[in-house]
Structure formats: C-alpha cells, structure tokens
C-alpha cells in the first residue's frame, strides 16, 4: 500500500467520523451532547481541511502509482 492510499484511508475515516458526529448531533435530545457533537464535527472538519492538501502533494510526488 502506498503512502497515498494510506492517507486516503485515514481521510475517509475522518470524513465518516465527521458525518457520524453530525448525525448524532441531530439525533440526540441532550443539549450538552448536541453541542459537543457539533463542536466535534467542526473540529474534525478542520482536521480534514488540514490533511487534504497533503494528499494532493503526495499524489503529485507519487505519479507512478496513479493510473
């Protein structure tokens, strides 16, 4: 597995977690939990935004693995 696919996997995991947080935030009736989930969704989104540019760098550096 190339580094590119690994990072891709991690990003996918982060995105699924982010989506799960948003779902939970909508599902729960508990006010403090709702706020916490929304906050977590925002933080996860910022992590995704941070890591994503790196994926582009890696794919640019590993052109031999791109079809």
């Amino acid at each position: 597995m190339t580094v590119g696919t690994q990072v891709k996997q991690t990003l996918a995991g982060l995105k699924s977690a982010q989506a799960a947080f948003e779902t939970f935030a909508l599902q729960t009736e508990n006010k403090s939990a709702k706020k916490l989930y929304q906050q977590a969704a925002k933080e996860t989104q910022s992590i995704i935004d941070n890591v994503e540019p790196r994926l582009q760098d890696i794919t640019a550096e590993e052109p031999q693995y791109n079809q």
Binding site: L36, Y37, A40, E43, T44, I47, R54, D57
Partner: peptide
Amino acid sequence: SKAMYKKNAALLQETINKLEPY
C-alpha cells in the same frame, strides 16, 4: 508535513478525550 500531522493528531486526541464519556 510532520508538523501538520502532529498538530492534527493532537487536535484529534483532544476531541477524543472530550467525547469519550459520550
């Protein structure tokens, strides 16, 4: 990138700590 990964790992750890009880 090292610094970027490290920063985000710490950020995520913080989120995990906060959410663990839930």
